[in-house]
């Protein structure tokens, strides 16, 4: 594996978290990462050194998913998915599982720029300034995207879980 291979290998954990936030079936989420890595590898001549590799890979992954989301989705979007397939992890409680499903559905409906900020801050626990540097945008832009993303996610998720809650009542 050459230098480029080593560089992208370092980004794999982050790409996987991103993919698993978009795709509910863990196998297919990892397929998406594999496809992303392969495409990045084939297109490596298009990656200009010094530019942001992480952002570039995230964009490839987002585009692959957006263009072929049917390939990576296990079935109809609203089918509750089994997160117990994650080996080694504590199986999330039923409520968490529902929430994870709703979360993924909602994340997919956000524009790429909002997804990126949301996942960098919410999932990678990156500080706003770090995310700004990584995405090469001002901190103010990170914040405004983050605020919009969270609010949109909240609305989408409450829409998704409301009927269930009503039934529980």
């Amino acid at each position: 594996m050459d230098e480029f291979g080593r560089l992208i290998e370092k980004e794999v954990p982050r790409l996987r978290r991103y993919a698993h936030a978009l795709v509910s079936d863990p196998e297919r989420a990892d397929d998406l990462v594999q496809d992303c890595l392969e495409r990045a590898w084939r297109k490596s001549h298009l990656w200009v050194r010094r530019t942001n590799l992480r952002g570039w890979l995230m964009t490839i992954l987002h585009n692959l998913h957006a263009n072929a989301s049917r390939r990576y989705s296990a079935g109809p979007a609203m089918v509750p998915l089994d997160d117990s397939q994650y080996a080694g992890a504590t199986a999330p409680a039923q409520a968490d599982r529902l929430q994870l499903g709703a979360l993924r559905d909602a994340v997919q409906r956000l524009p790429l720029e909002q997804q990126q900020v949301l996942l960098l801050v919410g999932m990678e626990q990156m500080r706003y300034a770090e995310a700004a540097e990584l995405l090469q945008i001002p901190v103010g832009t990170v914040m405004s995207r983050l605020f919009r993303a969270r609010e949109r996610l909240r609305v989408l998720m409450s829409e998704a879980t409301q009927p269930t809650l009503r039934r529980v009542k």
């Binding site: 990892d30 979360l103 998720m157």
Partner: peptide, 23 residues
């Protein structure tokens, strides 16, 4: 809760093995 859910997801993903493709 969004943040908490992302972290649950992140932990689950990290503990799942992954095969790097052969380049």
């Amino acid at each position: 809760r969004q943040n908490a859910a992302f972290r649950v997801l992140a932990d689950a993903v990290d503990s799942r093995p992954f095969a790097m493709p052969e380049f």
